[in-house]
Amino acid sequence: MRNDEFYIGWMQGAPATFIQFVRKYLLLIFFLAAVVGVLLATSQKKFSTATFEYGKTTTIKGVYAPSPVPHLSVKNNNEIVFIPLVGYGKQGAEGIIQELEKERGISLANKEVTFNGTLLYGDGKVLLQIDKNEAPLKQLSNAEASLPSATKALGPASLKGEVIDPKCYFGVMKPGEGKVHKDCAIRCIAGGIPPVLAITNEKGEKNYVLLVGANGEKLNDKVKDFVAVPSTITGELMQVDNWLVMQVKEMKNDMATFSSDASSQIASACEASCCKKRMQQ
């Protein structure tokens, strides 16, 4: 750089040596940007193949039941397919069902209904989003209906996995799991979407367990501390059509413990408190 060369931004041009130098630096910066872009783009985890048919609605006929979670049992060839229902956005389907029941003056439980909604599916599971703004109930049979639902008790079990919200996991969000999606999953479950435990075996195969309380009650306000972190869930496992369902007795992870048994909750709380006191001493 010659000593008389001086750069002033408000002038029309820059000295030649400055221009040459900056050009070389810009080439380096563009090259680094390309390297960063390539590395980041190719290092991301694979996205799931689950699908949310956004903008497309499908009509499904089946028998509605509110438990273990609001769902349709749909006859497909010789098997019954269990299709959990979810609402629009981060909402469960219960509110919409209650509005429809109020509107029709009849309980939808165990009635043959035809719903129009948006399908979500992946990994062998299907869910249906119903939106009150899209008049989801197309047909309703007033007579009680039943399908030969295959419910089978599998006994006590303790499973380790990650609590997810099935709406995002099965297509709305990619990724719909893990730390980056945690807040969304908490919000979805708080809004009424049934919690699901996603488990992976040693071969990398996945299975999914709908979580309900020990007496079949909703667990939505109990699972917040177990969402998107490795957790062990213990309870009575059962097979309901093509879904596993667990009546949860206990949930544990590194940060929290939940037990459906009030006395053991007190015991856990005492244990934590005593432990804390011992540490302080």
């Binding site: 956005g89 981060k90 999606h181 969304c184 919000r187 979805c188 708080a190 809004g191």
Partner: peptide, 9 residues
């Protein structure tokens, strides 16, 4: 919008 909207809060 993606992670927090359309919920109950």
């Amino acid at each position: 919008f993606q992670f927090h909207s359309l919920g109950n809060v």
